[in-house]
């Protein structure tokens, strides 16, 4: 069974998904970051494949991606690292990147390597629903590799239904009209949007991302969805960490509102 299904079967609330950019702050930090996040009780980890032109990302994730590329991160190196990580943990892993990276790697080969390494799902924010459904859905489904789509406050109800139909794993709810890392509070307008989506009773679990950076925003998001996704705030933490393991544990506990042991 796909680890995402296992996760959402046993846990319906307060699912914490942390995003980090592979190759940042150092080329070989991937293993430490994943294992420490797992140890700290993170439910799901999104591994970002650094990209030269990340259109949907704000300055923090852009900066980490540029540094990761300077550090020498590539998709083949990342797969090698993830293979070693997978031998040590069963935490669900998602790969996130831009479609051009997958195109150049070769879509068939990318899917196969994801399966071989033990990746559970993929997010490619610039691969449109139509292209996915027409050309790639079958390949992903055949391999048992899940694919998540994004919805935003502007996404129409009809389109959200389509997203729900095509998504496997979870729906990525963009909290606001924004690139990543842009906002720090949750407004009433956003709550309205969260309620509207909740009332749609979608088939897939929903995780809220973009602008989740603290215990308060995480807790609010969790009231209206199955959990939340944190990216930029975590990148900032690892970027300035003197002791990576300690900083990661502290960060996760501060988000959960629990005490570090």
């Amino acid at each position: 069974m796909n680890r995402l299904d296992q996760l959402f079967q046993k846990k319906e609330k307060e699912v914490l998904n942390i995003y980090f950019t592979a190759g940042y702050p150092t080329l070989d930090a991937t293993e430490t970051i994943i294992l420490e996040l797992d140890k700290a009780g993170v439910d799901l980890i999104e591994v970002g494949m650094p990209y030269s032109d990340p259109l949907a990302d704000g300055p923090t994730i852009q900066g980490s991606g540029q540094q990761a590329l300077v550090n020498g991160m590539t998709v083949p190196i990342l797969f090698e690292q993830l293979k070693r990580v997978r031998e040590q943990t069963e935490v669900p892993l998602i790969l996130m990147g831009y479609f051009n990276q997958v195109m150049q790697y070769g879509i068939g080969k990318f899917i196969q390597d994801c399966v071989d390494v033990g990746i559970d799902g993929v997010i490619l924010p610039d691969l449109p629903l139509f292209e996915y459904e027409s050309y790639y859905k079958k390949l992903f489904e055949k391999a048992g590799l899940y694919f998540s789509f994004l919805i935003t406050p502007q996404t129409s109800e009809e389109r959200i239904r389509k997203v729900d139909e095509l998504t496997k794993g979870f729906i990525y709810m963009v909290s606001n009209s924004a690139i990543t890392g842009a906002k720090n509070t949750i407004s009433e307008k956003q709550i309205e949007y969260f309620n509207r989506i909740q009332a749609m009773e979608l088939n897939n679990p929903r995780l809220i991302g973009f602008g989740i950076s603290s215990h308060e925003t995480y807790a609010t998001a969790c009231q209206y969805a199955n959990g939340a996704i944190i990216g930029s705030a975590f990148i900032r933490t690892v970027g300035k960490a003197e002791n990576l393991s300690e900083s990661i544990a502290d960060f996760v506990h501060s988000i959960r509102g629990t005490v570090s042991v």
């Binding site: 259109l55 479609f99 139509f130 292209e131 919805i151 389109r159």
Partner: peptide, 20 residues
């Protein structure tokens, strides 16, 4: 109708731009 000249074109955009 989908914005392709032969195999080139299309609209590979994040969902955030879709409605616009």
């Amino acid at each position: 109708e989908r914005g392709y000249y032969g195999e080139f074109g299309g609209a590979f955009i994040p969902e955030m731009l879709h409605s616009n």
